[in-house]
Design a protein around this nucleic acid. Structure first.
Lengths: 224, 224
DNA sequence: CTTCAACAACAAGAATACGCATAGTAATTG
DNA sequence: CAATTACTATGCGTATTCTTGTTGTTGAAG
């Protein structure tokens, strides 16, 4: 899951970044509206978190342009408390949710999760494929009766696979969503992490859930 | 535990703030109804203390709006002695408790504790995880037979951990609830205080109650 | 049926980031 | 102003992440 944060206050930006990264999202931050617009249109984000008070291009203008250009990525708006009517305009302009500053970071995380939930997955937010279960709230993963301990990256990769179960995910898609932007293309980290995951999830099972699609990428099996 | 105080008389407000902070709650104060409403909806408070006589938006209106928006945080209302019917209306509107001015601060603290007791933990208000026991009323902590002396911050942290036992608490979540809002993100105070707590609580035990979730945060173990 | 090239899997080690202890500094409190 | 408490800074060990090189697989051409 890749998130763009458009926020010019460095303190707030880095606070958000860290929180999101702790939830194993891939996060990009940019500090003005122009850059925000450019990035939003060139990279395939899953969510945009947008401050309304921005240099160069105001947040609302950015949002309108995005929607005008047919970009449908969910957008969460951050506003100061005083700018209440801006909020309404924000929702009119096509925002999916808003938060007033100051906000609890957990609130932001919860909204984030709920937006992703809306986009796909079960209502409870719990992801399940066969007897493999992932709970994004507690970050717990288990297969059948057995708890599975994953590292941050392993978890992020698995969540992405499970959210897109049944879809073949190419290596570029996976790097985009699970790793950072400035990423060395000629590496096989993904293969390595797929292997780690298989060791923890599929080892000893007759049916492997994570399957290789030669020449393309990987899929999480949906049908048994 | 984070508390919002909505009170326009500066003297009363600061009096309450100091008393609550002495009990190691994190306290935010705001002086009018509009701000109160915004904050209450944007920050994840554990309790709201609400004066009914407020500028901009009256307290009752604020409360109604909160409940209408599905906010279930416990609310204690403050009324003048004469405004009996206001009190009744307040409880109707979804307040959990009330106090008539002037009130003894100890009274407020007692109600606060009792509301927290109702909200979580055992009926008696005592929090218990394994053989670790925390009594919020007396602020006494013990493990097994042994009394444990904690400083204010240590206590606040432990109480937060215990109230959320079994949930992974990220560093941002912990700062939100135990430290102040405008918090330097690049610090390791939390780590240090976790370490203090472990020294007092877990040292010499084979099973540590406070567990690290690498890349995420900390959990208080529930299962043994 | 070989042979070869492209691709994937794996092992092992290097680099990095993270959590933790420790010690020192600043701020409170009595 | 002494003592306690709150916070900062630093360095170290280790889990995690990533790189590299080798081996194994697959499928198509000879």
């Amino acid at each position: 899951m890749r998130i763009l944060v458009v926020e010019d206050e460095p303190k707030v930006a880095s606070f958000i970044r860290r929180a999101l990264e702790e939830e194993s999202y891939a996060v990009d931050v940019c500090a003005d509206g122009q850059k925000g617009l450019d990035w939003a249109q060139s990279v395939d984000y899953d969510l945009i978190i947008l401050d309304l008070m921005l240099p160069v291009i105001p947040g609302l203008e950015l949002l309108k342009q995005l929607r005008r250009n047919g970009v449908k990525i969910p957008v969460v708006i951050l506003t100061a408390r005083s700018e209440v009517d801006q909020r309404v305009k924000g929702l009119d302009a096509g925002a999916d949710d808003y938060l007033t500053k100051p906000f609890a970071i957990e609130e932001l995380l919860a909204r984030t999760r709920s937006l992703f939930r809306r986009a796909g997955g079960t209502p409870s937010g719990i992801l399940q494929v066969d007897d493999l279960v992932l709970n994004p709230v507690t970050r717990e993963v288990s297969r059948g009766e057995q708890r599975i301990e994953l590292t941050t990256k392993e978890y992020a990769l698995l969540e992405y696979l499970m959210r897109n179960a049944g879809r073949v995910l190419t290596r570029p898609m996976i790097t985009e969503h699970v790793w950072d932007l400035d990423f060395d293309t000629f590496t096989n980290v993904i293969d390595v992490y797929i292997s780690y995951l298989r060791n923890k999830i599929d080892r000893g099972r007759e049916q492997s859930l994570i399957q290789t699609v030669r020449g393309s990428g990987y899929v999480m099996r949906t049908d048994v």
